[in-house]
Computed example of a mutant assay.
Amino acid sequence: MKGRIVRRCSVLLLGLAMSGAAAAAVEGNATLTTDYVWRGSSQSDGDPAAQAGVKLGSERGWYASVWGSGVSFQPDNGARSEFDVVAGWSGALGQDWALDVNLTRYLYPSSNVDLNWTELNSTLTWQQRYWLQVGVSDDALAGGHSGTYAQLGARLPLGEQWRLEAAVGHYWLASAQADDYLHGQLSAVWKVHGPWELRLTAHDTDTAAKRLFPGNAGSRVEFAVQTAF
């Protein structure tokens, strides 16, 4: 029943996004990274990954986007790609505050097991420097149980070309699936030229994450080249 409700909400949000796209703007992004790390755990088994996305947005704040990346899991379940299909709304809540609310569907088309799942996300931002993200799902990580994720982050500009970004996240998972876990990350970002940036990120997790994702959680360093267009 919950799955049907989520699918109906996805269709509704996508329809709203497209109906509000009379004056649509298209944005894109691309990244090459040495390791695709998501919420503290490697999604590429420690190997490099190519990533790209496109977003269609309207003047009213409604948007729809698709983002993709190469993936690899152990034990091997056949998954080689991930696609995140998103529909939502974002806009200002005053001079300093902004809000983004969206429904994200995580898809793994080549997997020989069902890894697809859906999450409702919201991100509150203050002065474009600090953010609080909360994501909820009744099928977290496609495990058949509920989960809530929260992340608190900050962005510190160091002149025109450099900035630091730090975030701490906590994943509350149903006890029937796994233990809750904590992770953190610290990035140094260099704006090389125009939209091109280099990012160096250090990740770490607690021992609960290491038990849940053996070999793919813990301390690791990721280097990425990224651009937006």
Rank of each mutant, 00 (worst) to 15 (best):
E27Y: 08
L124W: 06
Q51R: 11
L99Q: 05
Q95T: 11
S58F: 12
L115E: 07
K55P: 00
A150G: 00
Y63W: 00
L56I: 15
D139P: 04
G147W: 00
V86P: 08
E82P: 10
S44H: 05
S90W: 00
L158K: 01
S146P: 00
G94Q: 10
A22L: 07
V113R: 12
E59T: 10
V86T: 15
P109S: 09
E59Q: 14
Q43D: 04
S65D: 11
H145Y: 12
A64R: 11
S19A: 15
D100A: 02
G61M: 07
A142R: 06
A150R: 03
R39C: 05
R39H: 04
Y63M: 02
P48Q: 01
V113D: 08
N121T: 12
R105F: 02
G53N: 02
S44Y: 03
F73M: 08
W97M: 12
Q51L: 14
E59G: 15
S137V: 01
F73A: 09
R129L: 11
A142L: 06
L120Y: 04
L158S: 00
A92H: 10
W62V: 07
Y106R: 09
D84P: 11
P75I: 10
N77T: 13
L132A: 02
V134P: 03
P109C: 03
G88A: 11
